[in-house]
Every structure is written in structure tokens, then in C-alpha cells.
């Protein structure tokens, strides 16, 4: 008995392994596609096109102003009503995570771009670069460095919040921990291991981002 119950681990570790795989893949696609949609949303919000700006602003406000749980159920029950093909549970859960994360990423990126001094854009334009070249070579690389901590934080939040997809029956870490709770009648130990796994994932990610951040800051040191 006790927390490090070897018998328990030997018997049920597969639940945790599979759960970790599901959590990691949902988070991975959530981060990658959430960032892509987020970049588009942030550029829409920064553009001079009123329609693009309005759509993006409305979307971001709606997503930030409603609970992820509600969004998840809307996607889970709502999307199949309008889609001509069937999507698996896990696909629907991932879509909900992507749509949610995109709004937060968009705001982080927008803030990052706005934080770059206006003179940088002017200098690039004065050399003859187009707006998009200036964004690509000058603004976005600097913005990316500035927003990396905030972006890392958002990714960590996403991994943790992804536990909510267990309510629509996706077999992630949280769902499997719950299952084991039912099987073994022991509430504490499965949840303890679930927490430990989430922590290992987020802690590793946070360390990796720390390394990346230090590399990118190489040019900032004073002599």
C-alpha cells in the first residue's frame, strides 16, 4: 500500500501510458493548430480591414468570455449537426481545444507585435522593404522573442485544461485515472499519479522553453 504502490503500478500502468499518449497528442495538435489560427486571428485584428478586425475581435471576446467546458459541449454536440462527415470524439475534443487556445494565442501575439518600437518598422520601410517583408524579417522575430514566456505559459495552461475533454469520454490521463478510481475503489492513488504525470509534462515543457528563451536572448547581452 502507500502512495508508491508497486503492485498498483504493475497492474494499471497501461492506463496511464495510454492516457498520457492521448493527452500529449491532443495538446500537441492544440498547440500547433491553435498557434496557426492564433497568428491569423492576430493579423486580422491588427489589419486595417474593418471586417477582418471585427470578426477577429468578436471571436476572441466570445471565446475568452465563455467557459471552455461550454465550448467543448457546443463543439461536441453542435459540430456533428452541421458537418456532412463524422468526426471522432478525440477529433472534436481537439477542435474545441484548438478553437479555445487560438483566441488566447492571438492576443499574446498581437501584444508582442505591438510591443515592438514603431521605429523598427519605419527603419525597415525606409530601406525599401514592403510591409510583409518588414514583418517577416524585423517585427515578428523580435515579437516572438518577447512573447515566448507568455506563449509558454499558454501552452502549459492548455495541457492542464485539456483534462476537461475527459467529460466527453476521451480516454486521456484524467479519464483513465477516473476509470481506475472506479475499478479499484481507491480515489487517491490514481489521481495522485495523474497529477504527477501532468506535472512531469508541464515541467519538462517549461524547462525546454527556458532553454530556447536563453538562446534567443543571446543578442541582448551587454559587454
Amino acid at each position: 500500500m502507500g502512495i508508491f504502490d508497486l503492485e498498483f503500478i504493475a497492474q494499471y500502468y497501461k492506463y496511464f501510458l495510454r492516457g498520457t499518449g492521448v493527452t500529449l497528442s491532443v495538446s500537441f495538435f492544440g498547440v500547433v493548430f491553435g498557434s496557426m489560427v492564433g497568428i491569423v486571428l492576430s493579423l486580422m485584428k491588427l489589419s486595417n480591414n474593418k471586417i477582418a478586425k471585427g470578426l477577429s475581435t468578436a471571436y476572441i471576446e466570445l471565446v475568452r468570455g465563455t467557459p471552455l467546458l461550454v465550448q467543448l459541449f457546443i463543439v461536441y454536440y453542435g459540430f456533428p449537426m452541421f458537418l456532412p462527415f463524422e468526426l471522432s470524439r478525440i477529433a472534436l475534443g481537439t477542435i474545441a481545444v484548438i478553437l479555445n487556445s487560438a483566441a488566447y494565442v492571438a492576443e499574446i501575439i498581437r501584444a508582442g507585435i505591438l510591443s515592438i518600437d514603431r521605429g523598427q518598422m519605419e527603419a525597415a520601410r525606409s530601406l525599401g522593404m514592403t510591409h510583409s517583408m518588414a514583418m517577416r524579417f524585423i517585427i515578428i522575430p523580435q515579437a516572438f522573442k518577447n512573447i515566448l514566456p507568455a506563449l509558454g505559459n499558454e501552452f502549459i495552461v492548455l495541457i492542464k485544461e485539456s483534462a476537461i475533454i475527459s467529460v466527453i469520454g476521451i480516454h486521456d490521463i484524467m479519464y483513465n485515472a477516473d476509470t481506475l478510481r472506479g475499478i479499484t475503489y481507491r480515489p487517491f492513488i490514481p489521481l495522485f499519479y495523474a497529477a504527477l504525470l501532468y506535472f512531469i509534462i508541464t515541467f519538462t515543457l517549461s524547462k525546454l522553453l527556458g532553454i530556447l528563451e536563453r538562446r534567443l536572448r543571446a543578442g541582448d547581452q551587454y559587454n
Binding site: A123, S126, L127, D220
Partner: peptide
Amino acid sequence: VNKQREKMGMVFQQFNLFPHKT
């Protein structure tokens, strides 16, 4: 105007060098 800007160099009060580039 980008074509003409290539022929008009500009120097700013705040230098505006690109800090992430050598």
C-alpha cells in the same frame, strides 16, 4: 513607393538598428 525608398536613405534620431541582427 518601395522602389523609390531604396534610393532614399534615412537616418533616425533613435538609430533604429535591428537589435536581433548583428
